[in-house]
Design a protein around this nucleic acid. Structure first.
Length: 1018
RNA sequence: GCCCUGGUGGUGGAACUGGUAGACACGCAGGACUUAAAAUCCUGUUCGCCGCAAACGCGAGUGCGGGUUCAAGUCCCGCCCGGGGCACCA
């Protein structure tokens, strides 16, 4: 009987679906285990082989835990709101709800093929009103809360109002991220504020709040973006330019959680690099705010520094161009220069600032005074100081800070040296270990010791204060978009009123046409009817929607109780399932999703809605599977005037040449085999780059052939004799779909030409014969790079079980690796070999088959031998350990070893084989279920008991000891494990090979590590 | 520039707390079965040396250079290279 994976997989997928074996109950005596995947954004491109990597790993773990007796929650859903669906709608006129639905159906089909154990009855979609009702509800909880710094948690805004009524805001000062600059107010003042004023103040305390702030505005996408969605000054999606713009936006006050988000990292099992990324993003630094008096003006300038010990080395101060005191302190003489500089700064985009880090700045004419020695200090304005960080002003210590040093050098500002020889005058030295000089009362002290002393002195004199700063900013929480959760907010007279709970969900209105509104508003602003729906006068809905991370910040909770219409998640249920035990997903969400969902969890915890404040106990980041792109090469030429004789060319000629150059830089539709490219490179020594190659002479037949059409064209332009084809040519490469390229990098050019419109009527030129070679490169898998591998194709060819095991066998889950189908045969062979432990090969002679009438079945009820039990239990031990520590690739190899050994032993004993099937079921569920069933088991293998390890089968009584002499391995000797050091010494020294190496030298020492090795020192 | 990661055969990768480097696969070479193919099985496969060949043996070997140790892929110091993150954050 043959291993017919197609029939087997179809059969069991159907059966599992019908019997509902993956349905999980919220009530069980068993211990729980929650295994979660980062849910996908259902893009139109569908799944490629990189996507399921993490899903397979988590599925194996979930099935493994189930066999080990856990009640396992392993759900899946879709992060269904988002920009691409909306862009698609704008471009193709298809409603996002429809394209999303289509994409989800496609995803589901692909996922089902792989045989996952997801409980689909718990599926969530963030765009489903039953789901986003609760996203809106949680938003309202955040809106109705403030962060109480005294108790260090989120609390109801009612409590804040109470406190205001009793003692003003003396107890609860404005949060640091508030953009309202009222200092303090008394209880009476509070009571006398009108509603608008009160609400404006409260808005500055709310955890979800609306405010005016500098946002990342992306014109092309027509929306604002969060900081983590902007990379190098352009949008993460699409790479469009992003500018800073002041806009009214919703925010989440994540800054108040900075410290707890940092602290929580110590309690979770994330990789070092993940923790690192998050703590870098939060960017905590400790230092001090120090006030400097401005000379002969009644102003004080406050700076933030992490190095108060360097205060005597301050040679100048720099304030940000946006600093509020710029205008006030600038002297009349410097006024024009400063204004010019500010105009210049404004003209520069964020991108330009990042691209060219020029040293720029202007002197204000004003001086500050050093608080300790009264030394006057120049005050400069420069864009390298950021308004948004610290106080927007710094004290510059050029001998210790690289940027300050460069600035001082550039503008010829004299440098004070406070660290003696440790400063060489060539570059700044940021040491903390130098002994201070020229430093008043801290002279002779080591810098790091001086920090605390200066801090204390500053506080004593009332001119400074210790201060902790964070880089993290409040997260922009509104998007000028249609396809997202509407805000459950109504605006009236500039006051935001929350909807009542029974008004939720606030449905996203149907709209026939989705296009951006005016003044940077989202599409909803075009829907006047919806905006003005609330019945009371003059009130309007919020036209923005929530960002993608809203729904994903709490979905792990909804899976626990997905159909609850009364609460976002029943408390008993969330207590039962508790934290996610294993969360698997990509690193790209390090500072976005993961940080936000950790924050939301902390908020929900603070408000007493759940009982834990970290959502994910353990996080595993699967590596990216990269694609092996294939390229075909193009060649291009440049046209030059003959003899550089520009004079003989008319303006008209020049235009024609320009036209020809744009037309013929690349010879279109003519592609070169890669060996030809290499050949040309060898003939004409060229620079190393593949992209652009020059050479001196050019006389190759191929080149002549290629240039013929250009010559014809030159003729038709009447330019003969005026211009020539230069002796410079360039190579370009372009992607070709990888399924047209075989393992030897040979391109099936005929098929490509026929089937791919990009290559219609293309000419392919090879060095010899017909073979067209491609070059290869490892790149990220993506549709545009034509290097995607669709799992369906592989599953068709080898089956889901092979596919699952192969993805695991590729290497450690956490590691990035290029996709390569070469090895899949090996895994497939393994499963066939496994099959042959159960069923005879069809090709085997009938006589070798067992059973009455030569049945194909091979299994027997015979008692296993010790050798067979040893093979099995070795596998149990290794596979259990490896699965537990997510080392799936080594577990797969342990299966191979086990099956190889059992085949060698010709073991067909039921007792052994059944245990093996249970072990393997998490990895290859279909074939295991089939064989399990064939052996007469009526219940599904999913609920079998994981075989218990019996270590006594593994005990050996002797070992082949490696014997080294002076650390070099010379031989191995079989010795009883019970042997003592003396006995070992005797045996070893009696060995001929040992004798040969020892010669007659005295043995200095014999190192014997039981069950490990022997080393002889002579 | 700073931080995190990684560097092992022709390839993917094993080697858990220092203890036989290269498990398991792919590929390749040779062989068996077959009229043939597919499938399957067997043998070999880090490099170099000795040798007709095999067995055996010897030397070198985990990015490079040092060190600690009876013993280093693993620990320490200094470099080089790849991948990722952050980047005027004071």
């Amino acid at each position: 009987m043959e291993y017919n994976f197609r029939a087997i997989e179809k059969k069991w997928q159907q059966q599992w679906k019908e019997s509902g074996v993956y349905k999980v109950s919220n009530e069980s005596d068993k211990p729980k285990c929650y295994v979660l995947d980062m849910f996908p954004y259902p893009s139109g491109a569908g799944l490629h082989v990189g996507h399921p990597l993490g899903y397979i790993a988590s599925d194996i773990y979930a099935r493994f835990k189930r066999l080990k007796g856990f009640n396992v929650l392993h759900p899946m859903g879709y992060d269904a709101f988002g920009l691409p669906a909306e862009q698609y709608a704008i471009e193709h006129g298809i409603h996002p709800a429809i394209s999303t639905e289509n994409n989800i159906n496609n995803f589901r089909k692909q996922l089902d093929n792989i045989g996952f154990s997801f409980d689909w009855s718990r599926e969530v979609r963030t765009s489903d009103p039953h789901y986003y009702k609760w996203t809106q509800w949680i938003f309202l909880q955040l809106f109705k809360s403030f962060y109480n710094r005294k108790t260090n948690k989120a609390e109801s805004i009612e409590m804040l109002v109470d406190s205001f009524e009793k003692e003003g805001n003396t107890v609860h000062d404005f949060p640091s991220s508030a953009n309202y600059h009222l200092s303090t107010f008394s209880a009476d003042e509070w009571k006398n504020f009108d509603e608008k004023n009160q609400q404006d103040i409260l808005m500055n305390y709310r955890i979800a709040y609306c405010g005016i702030g500098e946002v990342n505005w992306c014109e092309a996408l027509g929306t604002v973006l969060a900081n983590d969605e902007v990379i190098n000054g352009v949008s993460e999606r699409g790479g469009y330019p992003v500018v800073k713009k002041k806009l009214r936006q919703w925010y989440l006050r994540i800054t108040e959680y900075a410290d707890r988000l940092l602290e929580g990292l110590q309690r979770v099992d994330f990789s070092e690099s993940m923790k690192e990324m998050q703590s870098n993003w939060i960017g905590k630094s400790t230092g001090a705010n120090v006030k400097f008096k401005v000379q002969s003006k009644n102003y004080e300038l406050e700076v933030y520094t992490t190095r108060p010990d360097t205060i005597f080395g301050v040679d100048f101060m720099v304030i940000a161009p946006e600093h509020e005191l710029v205008e006030s302190i600038t002297t009349d003489k410097q006024k024009i220069a400063v204004e010019e500089y500010l105009t210049y700064v404004k003209s520069r985009s964020e991108r330009e600032r990042m691209a060219e880090k020029k040293i720029t700045g202007v002197f204000t004419g004003a001086y500050a005074l050093n608080p300790f020695d009264g030394k006057p200090i120049l005050i400069w304005v420069s864009e390298y100081v950021l308004a948004g960080y610290g106080t927007g002003a710094i004290m510059a210590v050029p001998c210790g800070d690289e940027r300050d040093f460069k600035f001082a050098k550039h503008f010829n500002i004299p440098i004070t040296n406070i660290i003696g020889e440790r400063f060489n005058g060539e570059e700044a030295n940021p040491t903390k270990d130098a002994v201070l000089q020229n430093s008043g009362f801290i002279n002779g002290m080591v810098m790091k010791d001086a920090i605390e002393i200066v801090n204390n002195k500053l506080e004593e004199l009332g001119i400074g204060k210790k201060k902790i700063n964070y880089k993290i900013r409040d997260a922009a929480f509104s998007r000028q978009r249609y396809w997202g959760e509407p805000f459950p907010i109504i605006w009236k007279n500039g006051i935001a009123y929350p909807l009542e709970e029974n008004e939720l969900p606030l449905l996203l209105p149907e709209m026939d046409e989705i296009k951006p509104g005016k003044d940077g508003d989202g599409p909803l602003s075009n829907n006047e009817e919806w905006l003005s729906t609330p019945s009371f006068g003059g009130s309007r809905r919020e036209a923005a929607t929530m960002p993608g991370y809203a729904g994903s910040s709490w979905y792990f909770l909804r899976y626990m109780d997905p159909h609850n219409n009364q609460e976002f998640c029943n408390r008993k249920v969330s207590d039962y399932w508790n934290q996610v035990d294993l969360y698997i997903g990509g690193t790209e969400h390090a500072v976005g999703h993961l940080l936000y969902s950790r924050m939301w969890t902390k908020c929900l915890y603070d408000l007493g809605l759940i009982s834990y404040d970290e959502p994910y106990k353990k996080l595993v980041n699967q590596g990216m599977i990269t694609g092996n792109s294939a390229f075909i090469h193009l060649i291009g030429f440049i046209l030059l005037p003959v003899n550089s004789a520009n004079q003989i060319l008319t303006e008209e000629d020049k235009e024609k040449i320009a036209l020809l150059n744009t037309k013929y830089q690349i010879i279109k539709n003519t592609f070169l085999s890669y060996d030809l490219v290499n050949h040309l490179k060898i003939i004409y020594p060229t620079p190393e780059s593949d992209e652009e190659i020059e050479h001196e002479q050019l006389n190759h037949n191929v080149i002549n052939y290629l240039t013929q059409p250009i010559k014809d064209e030159i003729k038709s332009f009447g330019l003969i004799g005026k211009i020539m084809i230069s002796n410079i040519y360039l190579y370009y490469k372009t992607h070709v779909p990888i399924d047209y390229v075989n393992h030897n990098d040979e391109l099936n050019s005929k098929r490509l030409e026929k089937e791919n419109s990009k290559f219609t009527n293309a000419t392919f030129i090879s060095l010899e014969g017909e073979t067209i070679k491609c070059s290869r490169e490892i790149e990220k898998m993506s549709k545009s790079k034509m290097n995607v591998v669709n799992p369906n194709d592989l599953i068709n060819k080898y089956g889901a079980d092979t596919f699952r095991m192969y993805e695991m066998f590729l290497g450690p889950v956490e590691q990035s690796k290029p996709w390569d189908t070469k090895g899949i045969e090996g895994v497939h062979r393994f499963l066939k070999k496994l099959w042959r432990l159960f069923f005879a090969d069809d090709n085997a002679p009938l006589s070798s088959r067992r059973g009455v009438g030569g049945e194909a079945q091979l299994w027997t009820d015979e008692k296993p031998t010790d050798a067979e039990l040893k093979v099995l239990h070795k596998a149990i031990k290794k596979i259990e350990e490896d699965t537990e520590r997510f080392s799936f690739n080594t577990a797969v190899s342990a299966f191979m070893v086990c099956v190889n050994d059992l085949s060698d032993l010709k073991c067909h004993k039921k007792e052994i084989l059944e245990s093996l099937l249970i072990l393997l079921a998490p990895y290859a569920p279909h074939v295991c279920e089939e064989l399990w069933n064939a052996m007469g088991n009526t219940k599904s293998i999913l609920d079998a008991a994981f075989p218990a390890l019996n270590a006594s089968y593994l005990i050996e009584n002797s070992k082949e000891y490696p014997v080294s002499i002076n650390g070099k391995l010379r031989t191995t000797i079989h010795i009883d494990l019970s042997a003592t050091q003396e006995q070992v010494q005797e045996i070893v020294l009696a060995n001929d090979i040992v004798k040969k190496w020892v010669e007659d030298k005295p043995v200095k020492k014999l190192i014997f590590v039981k069950n490990k090795m022997v080393n002889l020192v002579v």
